[in-house]
């Protein structure tokens, strides 16, 4: 029972976001704020967004985002501000451009490559099987031999 509660507690603590998330007066800005903080990576704990992280830096970046929104900056301007300072790495969803092209294309390319390999593999298997089928037929055609086997089986082993 105790284990169960610990597990539940663990789940809850994982889903709740950072304690000091900011509240902006304007609901539209609040929406942008939530969107942006979920797109920006916390550079201290690299697999968390700044919305999730309780690191000091994440706190400062959340403050920066909310202040910029209140100053009337657009989402693009804020993203630009962050990438100017922390590089593309700060974006959870990297921009589609020359440098990141491989990153975007690689998963699809590997999928296609995998499908091609599976296709070739199956075709080879099939070819092999039909070859074996032919040789079975050849065996059946040899009636003399078959009759001989039957006779031997009927007579039984007399040695």
């Amino acid at each position: 029972m105790m284990k169960y509660w610990i597990f539940v507690f663990f789940l809850i603590s994982q889903t709740s976001s950072a304690l000091d998330a900011r509240q902006l007066a304007d609901p539209k800005l609040q929406e942008n704020y939530e969107l942006l903080t979920k797109e920006l990576r916390c550079l201290v704990c690299q697999n968390q967004t700044i919305a999730d992280s309780n690191a000091e830096l994440a706190f400062d970046l959340r403050r920066q985002v909310s202040e910029m929104l209140e100053q009337g900056k657009s989402n693009d301007e804020i993203i630009q501000f962050m990438t100017d300072r922390y590089g593309d790495f700060v974006l959870y969803k990297p921009a589609f451009k020359g440098k990141t092209l491989l990153l975007w294309i690689a998963p699809g390319a590997f999928l296609v490559l995998g499908l091609i390999i599976v296709y070739i593999f199956i075709r080879q298997k099939r070819a092999l099987r039909s070859e074996q089928g032919v040789s079975n037929n050849e065996l059946k055609l040899d009636i003399d031999k078959q009759n001989k086997i039957r006779r031997l089986l009927e007579k039984g082993d007399q040695s």
């Binding site: 550079l43 400062d60 300072r85 922390y86 590089g87």
Partner: peptide, 13 residues
């Protein structure tokens, strides 16, 4: 103290 210059210099560690 507030880490604002830090943000301008992309300080993270």
């Amino acid at each position: 103290q507030e880490g604002r210059i830090g943000i301008d210099y992309g300080v993270y560690g």
